[in-house]
């Protein structure tokens, strides 16, 4: 085998080029922290990464939906808790109306009615909580007979692929029991307490108030179980999202320790190559001819 002067130089040049490309790739990995910086780095891996990203984004959205729904339920619960307290107050007054100051009692009942009416008009964002799909209409009229203006629609929440949770939004299922409308009952109670005072009529209000109270409790426990279910779903998504995220990391992220070691090794190889080149390239017979 003849070795020409150019072979030496060409070999060294081509090896230097190879080594510097490797070094550059390793540097890019270290700089971005990613093993895959463009699809051709690992086509199959890139496909997996994109799948993971889609899944992660979808999960994030489900969790946002859940958060929104949970906030809505928490808010509903606060409202209904207060309504429940007011009903109990009204019940106390109705069951024992025989006190001196009926005017004050009547006034309190009017106050309670107004409060409960206000509470039934509660809005989450710009939407009424208790008027079904007619979220832009107040659920109940402000005056007798306090007709329900909403419909039977419920608020649907998407919590997973093909999975929705329905949140009760039908005010007529919460504030009305059979023929008895909470606001009308309170209105009647107020009338019974004002002149002429009618203790029997007042006490008659206790029974419908109790039934409506129970209905309210039922609605609250339904909300509570919805809430629990959502928390579990959220936890599930959280775990799933962590699993997918770690899968993505395994595929996409560079092992920094390994890469740093690679970098060190490649750098050493590069330096050795340079040192060798410096020695090999120089001497020819010319240097030794006198």
């Amino acid at each position: 085998m003849r070795i020409s002067t150019r072979i030496m130089a060409d070999r060294i040049k081509s090896n230097l080029a190879k080594q510097s490309i490797q070094l550059m790739r390793t540097q890019l990995k270290l700089a971005t922290g990613k093993r895959i910086n463009k699809p051709s780095d690992d086509p199959t891996g890139m496909g997996k990464i994109l799948d993971c990203r889609t899944t992660l984004q979808t999960i994030d959205q489900y969790r946002e939906n859940l958060l929104d729904a949970k906030t809505r339920i928490e808010y509903t619960e606060t409202v209904l808790g207060q309504v429940s307290d007011y009903i109990n107050d009204a019940k106390k007054i109705a069951s024992n109306p025989d006190t001196e100051d009926k005017t004050a009692l009547a006034q309190e009942i009017r106050h309670i009615r107004q409060q409960v009416l206000d509470l039934s008009n509660a809005k989450y964002g710009a939407n009424y909580l208790f008027s079904g799909h007619r979220s832009d209409t107040a659920p109940f009229d402000q005056s007798a007979p306090y007709a329900y203006g909403g419909d039977s629609g419920s608020h649907q929440v998407m919590v997973g692929e093909g999975i929705t949770v329905k949140i009760e939004a039908d005010g007529s299922e919460i504030f009305v029991d059979g023929g008895d409308n909470l606001f009308q009952v309170l209105d009647d109670l107020e009338t019974a307490l004002t002149d002429p005072f009618d203790p029997v009529a007042a006490q008659n209000a206790v029974e419908p108030l109790s039934r409506i109270g129970e209905r309210l409790q039922l609605a609250r426990s339904n909300f509570a179980s919805d809430y629990k279910r959502m928390e579990r779903t959220d936890e599930y998504w959280n775990n799933f999202s962590n699993a997918v995220e770690s899968m993505r990391q395994n595929v996409e992220d560079a092992d920094i320790t390994q890469t740093a070691v690679d970098m060190q090794v490649q750098q050493t190889a590069y330096e050795v190559l340079l040192a060798t080149a410096a020695r090999v390239i120089q001497p020819t017979l010319v240097d030794f001819l006198g």
């Binding site: 889609t54 984004q57 979808t58 959205q61 939906n65 964002g125 939407n127 649907q156």
Partner: peptide, 21 residues
Amino acid sequence: LNGAMAQFWNSWQDVANNPSG
């Protein structure tokens, strides 16, 4: 496109959360 599509579908879910918003 992967990200843009995901955002598009997610926006529909946001609309579902507040349909008249």
